[in-house]
Amino acid sequence: MSNLSVWDRVLLARMPMRPTSRFYLENVFDSFEELHGDRYYSDDRAIVGGIGFINDTPVTIIAQMKGENTKDNILRNFGMPSPEGYRKSLRLMEQANKFNRPIITFVDTPGAFCGKQAEERGQGEAIAKNLFEMMGFTCPILSIVISEGGSGGALGISVANEIWMLENSIYSVISPEACSSILWKDSSKFKEASEFLKLTSYDLKEFGIADKIIDEYGEGAHVTKDKIAESMRDDIIDFIKRFKNKSSCEIKEERYQKFRKISKYGIE
């Protein structure tokens, strides 16, 4: 699908038929037990978290969850987490760090919920604390962008040792529509904005932000999801094996250096 335009990939990433995190939870892992609540306010359905097994290895899984139909999307706030979602994530990740379980996160959000209630409950603080705490964890963290990775809403669960992206997923500080509104005061220039944002998996692999591109086998994840899940399972097992013999200090330092390194473009 190398001949697709950037906007074509944006549309594929947002396609309603594209598999949500639920599909990967059910088809990549041997089992999964969901855990609920942030122990402060409520249980945010936009983020699903719990403990799973893959190849007899226990892992903690955090997944941003879009709905599979209109009713489910409303329940899950269209995959836009509130502060309690990030606090739930941190609670489960702290548990994983305590017991040295690998953390696997699935990123699929247009961005954190920006409503008045979310701001009142400390949206910015919740995301910032996740960034701070994840940087210091001594267990390995893998983050997989499966569709949209929008701004701090995505980054709040993706301070990882490795970041993988499905071929037609996107990862950006802002949406093309919002970018064009800010830069040109004209939201109709969203296609041009998508080009400037460099948000595709190929762009981010070149910049050293994405470590791996997961092949969608030429037709898109909505068609080849079973094949993608099979290869993703093998790759996750390999990731766990590669980090198994690394010390906690090595794991922590590698993550730190990933986010501190100076790229060939001079960005620190």
Score class of each variant (00 low, 15 high):
residue 110 P to Y: 10
residue 116 K to I: 12
residue 167 E to G: 03
residue 149 G to T: 15
residue 93 M to K: 04
residue 152 G to Y: 08
residue 161 N to T: 12
residue 152 G to V: 15
residue 57 T to R: 11
residue 151 S to Y: 08
residue 167 E to Q: 13
residue 58 P to R: 12
residue 190 F to R: 14
residue 151 S to A: 13
residue 124 G to V: 09
residue 73 N to V: 07
residue 188 S to C: 12
residue 118 A to G: 12
residue 83 P to T: 10
residue 66 K to L: 15
residue 167 E to V: 10
residue 76 R to M: 10
residue 95 Q to V: 13
residue 102 P to N: 13
residue 139 C to F: 03
residue 153 G to M: 02
residue 154 A to Q: 05
residue 172 S to C: 04
residue 64 Q to F: 02
residue 175 S to H: 00
residue 84 E to P: 06
residue 70 T to S: 09
residue 135 M to W: 01
residue 118 A to C: 08
residue 188 S to G: 12
residue 131 L to S: 06
residue 69 N to G: 11
residue 91 R to C: 01
residue 68 E to S: 12
residue 186 D to Q: 14
residue 150 G to A: 04
residue 188 S to M: 15
residue 61 I to P: 08
residue 177 E to G: 03
residue 90 L to F: 03
residue 71 K to Y: 07
residue 75 L to N: 12
residue 163 I to T: 08
residue 120 E to K: 13
residue 83 P to D: 03
residue 68 E to T: 13
residue 64 Q to H: 09
residue 98 K to G: 00
residue 65 M to I: 10
residue 62 I to C: 00
residue 187 S to A: 08
residue 130 N to H: 03
residue 172 S to Q: 05
residue 163 I to Y: 00
residue 166 L to G: 06
residue 86 Y to D: 00
residue 84 E to Q: 14
residue 135 M to P: 05
residue 63 A to Y: 10
residue 66 K to A: 11
residue 190 F to M: 08
residue 108 D to M: 06
residue 106 F to K: 04
residue 184 W to R: 11
residue 161 N to V: 11
residue 132 F to R: 14
residue 83 P to R: 09
residue 85 G to C: 06
residue 137 F to Y: 07
residue 118 A to K: 01
residue 126 A to L: 00
residue 98 K to M: 14
residue 160 A to C: 07
residue 114 C to S: 13
residue 57 T to M: 12
residue 75 L to H: 13
residue 89 S to K: 11
residue 159 V to Q: 09
residue 100 N to C: 11
residue 189 K to F: 10
residue 171 Y to F: 07
residue 61 I to N: 06
residue 97 N to E: 12
residue 97 N to H: 15
residue 170 I to H: 03
residue 66 K to P: 13
residue 178 A to N: 15
residue 105 T to A: 00
residue 193 A to R: 01
residue 104 I to G: 01
residue 134 M to N: 07
residue 120 E to C: 06
residue 140 P to S: 15
residue 108 D to C: 10
residue 74 I to L: 14
residue 129 K to A: 04
residue 104 I to K: 02
residue 67 G to V: 15
residue 122 G to A: 08
residue 70 T to G: 12
residue 121 R to F: 15
residue 170 I to G: 00
